[in-house]
Design a protein around this nucleic acid. Sequence first.
RNA 1: CGGGAUGUAGCUCAGCUUGGCUAGAGCGCCUGGUUUGGGACCAGGAAGUCGCAGGUUCAAAUCCUGUCAUCCCGACCA
Length: 582
Amino acid sequence: MRWSKTLIPTMKEVPADAEIPSHQLMLRAGLIRQLMAGAYTYLPLGYRALRKAEAIVREEMERAGAVELFMPALQPIDLFEKTGRKEAFGNVLINFQVQRGGRQVHLALGPTHEEVVTDLISRHVTSWRQLPLCVFQIQTKFRNEERPRFGVLRTSEFLMKDAYSFHSSLEQLNETYQAMYHAYCRVFARCGLNYVPVEAESGPIGGDASHEFMVPAGNGEDRIVKSTKGNYAANLERAETGRKSPSLTTPADAAALQKVATPNATSIEQVSRMLKCSPQQMIKTLIFQADDAPVAVLIRGDHEANEGKIRRALGCKSLGLADPKTIEAVTGAPVGFAGPVGIKCRVIADHDVPLIANAVTGANAADAHFTGVNIGRDYQLDTTFDLRNAVHGDPCPRSDGTLELVHGIEVGHVFKLGTKYSVSLGAEFVDEKEQRHPLIMGCYGIGVNRIIASLAETSFDENGLIWPLSVAPYSVEIIPLNVTDPEVMQLAERCYSELEAAGVDCLFDDRDQRPGFKFKDADLIGIPLRLVIGGKGLKEGNVEIKWRTSAGPDKVPVDQAVVTVQRLLAERRTQEFARVPA
RNA sequence: CGGGAUGUAGCUCAGCUUGGCUAGAGCGCCUGGUUUGGGACCAGGAAGUCGCAGGUUCAAAUCCUGUCAUCCCGACCA
């Protein structure tokens, strides 16, 4: 492609609305333009990169045995009502009514396609002999983000690869799950991403096992926990800690229990300031409603409660913070003064709580807290649990390493769905013994835009983007330094047509601009290999070839230019593939 | 949805506090010329309903009210 024939609006200055590297660079390099908050146009250069990532995803899905189909983005709202997800999605689900003849039709724009695909499969798959089956599509998804942000990382409209698998047994599901997991590793490795598969909660979608694929990045929205020994990684929601129950004995030097006045101090922060104690010294007492019973959950003041862990520790179905009426009934005090001493409900505590000697906590009385609270003497526990979010330095649950927290961008998610959708939509099969069972499902998503955005976010230098060959918009940029010099242009044109004929995708910078100008643009858009043809080199019979990341150019004889470019690209491709798991 | 910030030329921004000349600069763009190996120089030029609506005033980019949009923090996020 000739630069003069395409649209690559590069910018020298940083747009005021862009804060993070990927957003700034994608705008400056002319990859994207914003239409409104959460909706971006992919310009020719950005679209090429997106398409290359898409092609890699498609290849790997097919390699893993999935078949591609294409479902409508427009969906009848009834499907979401049947599965209860109209509620669950709430405002995120873009839906509206349209007139058709005399009636109103209520439609939604698909945020994902579990309903549509399950409905489809339920009509055509009836026998165990047809299973397993794995279908996928690459399609635009719509979610009304309450707050789109970070440029292209969080938008209301995005390209997603979503795959769905159907099985007659858990073993079958596990096999496909493994195949998808492996395919995902190959996809992200081929795209040149530094990725970490982490254990994850499957979330409101249900199911029992799931992994997220995260790209570590300071601006990532998610927090993930990694072991320093490298054998454990999980998202913060899910991450276990390797802590154990401490001994539940009253410390020998326990101070006296004292009630102190704390008027209007209802938060950890307010109390710690008023009583001049650190949050680590405090016990946070949260009253939850677990199924039908209130439960007090004790967490050290500086820690965050983890609802998933609390739910598992209690073995309850539903869990949520109790309403003020319940809290008052249980504590005998308004909200904000709960504590374990004399509370009238079941109490469970995190491992770290009994370790606090002379703790500060609510006194179950208005405007009062206790100090000098100690395990055994002032409150009792049978045992303790892991109930809080992991924290930097916690012991690893799988090794003698410790845990560290990093931010990450979620680029993929695989999970075992089970029968949630097949049950609610009546998707059943008949087994060998003529018994009917709901189909067992898995689903697997990749954010294609996020592959590009994560690369832009993590692969750049002070001059601009640095693409891996695999998803670079073009492999080679050819730069004739003086387009008015016929000798230079003739050679440049020849290299361009020979490379294109050999199937190498080239960007030919045929603009009448000064060399420095073109070099700056070339670095900004980050095409991996640069072929420079200039008057000086030509006098010596040379052209210059340079990788985006190497310090200086290599001189190559004119007649070797095309084959050298081809050789270098082939070598680089092999290198990039060497990192892909077999 | 709560908190904060910003809307002036394609981009980055000044002007607003203290209302008043024809609304400015740099970059980009157009014309001509000189240049040509890391974002050239000279000369000339085009380009803005000052986000929008209403109000105050002899007079509003500037003050007031409302509204819309965008960005950031938080809540939310299959």
